[in-house]
Simulated assay, not measured.
Amino acid sequence: MLYVIGIGPGSQATMTMEALDAINDAEVIVGYKTYTHLVKALTVGKEVIKTGMCKEIERCLAAIELAQTGKKVALISSGDAGIYGMAGLILELVTKQNLDVEVRLIPGMTASISAASLLGAPLMHDFCHISLSDLLTPWEVIEKRIIAAAQADFVICFYNPRSRGRADHLERAFELMKPFKAAATPVGVVKSASRKKQEKWITTLGDMDFEPVDMTSLVIVGNQSTYEQNGLMITPRGYEV
């Protein structure tokens, strides 16, 4: 059995019961070292295999090989394993090689949902996710998606918004949105959602400060109807209030 588990944004309180049960049932836990640390209290007495960044294929292959020996293996991802996580890669490897491995996908709370709950209700109408990491997607493609989403007036959730190697990507994304979104458009930022160093703040498209944003952050840019009131970011659904 190979469980592919989304452990949520960071705390045990935001994990699903199904995820907790799967981790409890597993004999071996495989994951990025930061994620294995987040579930450390749940892995006492279990074999834990952890790797660093950019080792996704190695992690998946290790989990598959262990599952093929008959062990119950849990491959963990933060958030939801099917949203920028390991679910797709595992299924690609298993199906393309026609491997005899039972895979069970366990959903989790993705970062946009966790961040939105802390900011108010910014995702009440149509929204999309865009990752600003160009490690696997050409930047030219990412730019086209940003422009299209802004033109369509989606609320936009930016994953992987800013890192040392991509210090200017978020600022460039905002420049691409400016012809289609007003400077007063509310923008919410949450860092380390559900973790010890959690921070959140609401600003605007025109006043955005990019420096505090990092890879643990989730940035939500509102649509033309989104507003901020009493410290809350709200996107109306259209009900008459």
Rank of each mutant, 00 (worst) to 15 (best):
V4A: 05
G10F: 03
Q12W: 04
A13K: 14
A13Y: 11
T14S: 13
E18M: 14
A19K: 01
N24D: 15
D25R: 10
G31Y: 00
Y32F: 12
Y32I: 06
T34A: 13
T34C: 06
T36H: 08
T36K: 07
A41F: 09
T43H: 08
E47G: 07
I49Q: 05
G52Y: 09
G52T: 05
C54T: 10
C54L: 11
R59E: 01
C60W: 00
C60V: 15
L61Q: 13
A62D: 08
E65F: 09
A67H: 04
T69E: 15
V73W: 01
S77P: 02
S78D: 01
G79F: 02
A81M: 04
A81W: 00
G82T: 01
G82R: 00
Y84A: 06
Y84G: 02
M86Y: 10
M86C: 13
L91W: 10
Q97A: 14
L99E: 05
L99V: 05
L99K: 05
D100V: 02
V101K: 00
V103N: 03
L105S: 03
M109I: 15
S112Q: 10
S114R: 05
S114L: 11
A115G: 09
A115P: 04
A116T: 08
L118G: 01
L119C: 07
A121E: 06
M124I: 06
M124R: 10
M124G: 14
F127N: 08
C128M: 06
I130N: 00
L135H: 11
L136E: 11
T137R: 13
V141D: 14
V141S: 12
K144D: 13
I147T: 12
A149W: 00
A150Y: 03
I156Y: 03
I156S: 04
C157I: 14
F158Q: 02
N160H: 15
R162H: 11
R164Q: 12
G165H: 14
R166P: 01
L170R: 03
E171V: 05
A173V: 05
F174W: 01
F174L: 14
E175H: 09
K178H: 09
F180A: 01
A182H: 09
A182K: 15
V187M: 03
G188M: 05
V190G: 01
K191S: 13
S192R: 14
A193S: 15
A193K: 01
R195Y: 07
W201A: 04
T203Q: 00
M208I: 11
F210Q: 01
E211K: 13
V213Q: 02
V213T: 01
S217L: 10
V219C: 06
V219Q: 02
Q224C: 10
S225K: 13
Q229Y: 11
Q229C: 09
N230G: 07
G231H: 12
G231A: 12
L232H: 11
L232K: 14
M233L: 14
T235H: 10
P236H: 05
R237A: 13
G238D: 08
E240T: 10
